[in-house]
């Protein structure tokens, strides 16, 4: 059963929804892009559908709502501490299929990995009700079909933007009341079945091949090309790395807060350890680490999926025009070359 929330007649609808839910969606921040007179689209709290950007892909992913770039996790005084507080209000989170799949990866890392569920992730995740934003064609950097993330079955609401207004498919019972009295419409979301790029993730048959691949000279092209800025990972829907940082209040070292701050394997210094050890000393080895983590190691560890949902945001945000799909193709070519040589 679908509904049409007509353009210009939707103020009461959104007001009612806002009373009970915090609504987060991709929003335009005019002139806040990397270059002057360019915009940025990122997640923020919105008041109504008019603020939501439907016809462009957001520059930054939906994960920013669940795991903000910077959040206080606990406050300490001398030998006591308490966790930061969070709102209990439910969230309607407008997400595209890739973002929804990415959230499932995040759940694995934050809730299952290591056997302890992360409190901060869990309390946010529990608030989230998924609003699926339909992608009609996708964009030129998308490759969700290749990664199997183009379809979504589970959602509370699905939405499509039309000339007349927003079409909603309502799956979650608790949300039905908000649509009472709205004109019915025949709407079921469709999914992108073909992207303009498609990739095949190479199978890396054994450890020997993996070791050879790590040494393959093609990685060297990223020295001098990749700036190790980390823009790709910050924009990545699935990256979860963070660091913790203690902030002391004023001049009293016994009082302060601990923050969780997003971090990136692409930034130099990320893997520095006590004793002056660091594993990956150049851009090429950081790129190799990222690519193998996304397209081999994660799946080798967790089984079912690669740690990439094909959202293409890393490609979009890379200031050096390093395309993840092109890099993956180069990696696949190196794997093919090494496999045929060893036969």
């Amino acid at each position: 059963m679908g509904y049409l929330i007509g353009k210009g007649e939707d103020a009461a609808f959104w007001a009612k929804l806002r009373q009970d839910y915090d609504i987060y969606a991709p929003k335009r921040f005019p002139k806040q892009g990397r270059f002057s007179d360019t915009d940025i689209i990122r997640y923020d709290r919105v008041e109504s559908g008019a603020e939501i950007v439907f016809d462009e892909k957001s520059d930054y992913p939906a994960k920013e709502v669940l795991t903000p770039i910077c959040q206080a996790i606990l406050y300490f005084t001398e030998d006591e501490y308490r966790a930061s507080k969070a709102s209990q209000r439910p969230i309607l989170l407008f997400m595209r299929p890739c973002d929804i799949h990415a959230m499932q990866h995040q759940e694995k890392i934050y809730l299952e990995n290591g056997g302890v569920a992360d409190l901060y992730y869990r309390r946010m995740r529990e608030r989230v009700h998924i609003v699926l934003m339909e992608c009609s064609e996708g964009w030129d950097t998308c490759f969700c079909v290749s990664m199997g993330t183009n379809r979504v079955e589970d959602y509370a609401l699905a939405v499509r933007q039309t000339e007349q207004g927003l079409l909603f498919d309502v799956r979650e019972d608790a949300l039905k009341t908000y649509f009472a009295g709205q004109p019915a419409a025949d709407f079921q979301p469709v999914f992108v079945e073909k992207n303009s790029v498609s990739v095949t993730v190479p199978e890396i048959a054994d450890k020997e091949l993996l070791l050879k691949l790590k040494e393959h000279p093609f990685w060297q092209q990223f020295n001098g090309r990749c700036e190790s800025c980390g823009a790709c990972t910050i924009a990545c829907s699935t990256c979860t790395c963070f660091t913790t940082r203690d902030v002391i209040y004023g001049d009293n070292p016994a009082v302060g807060e601990r923050r969780r701050v997003t971090s990136s394997c692409q930034v130099s210094g990320f893997d520095d350890m006590a004793g002056g050890i660091s594993f990956r000393k150049d851009a090429a080895s950081r790129m190799r680490y990222k690519m193998l983590h996304k397209f081999r190691d994660y799946k080798a560890r967790f089984g079912d999926h690669h740690m990439c949902v094909g959202c293409g945001r890393c490609t979009d945000r890379c200031p050096q025009f390093i395309s993840v799909t092109a890099t993956l193709e180069k990696m696949a070519a190196a794997v093919a070359e090494l496999s045929s040589a060893s036969k």
Partner: peptide
């Protein structure tokens, strides 16, 4: 020390190189 950036505003020339460099959009014009 808190991992925050501090600026001496007197001598900023307003070039926005910092905006271009930031991977996270933490500086905006």
């Amino acid at each position: 020390a808190d991992g925050r950036v501090e600026k001496d505003p007197c001598c900023c020339v307003g070039c926005a190189e910092c905006v271009k460099a930031c991977p996270a959009g933490a500086w905006t014009r």
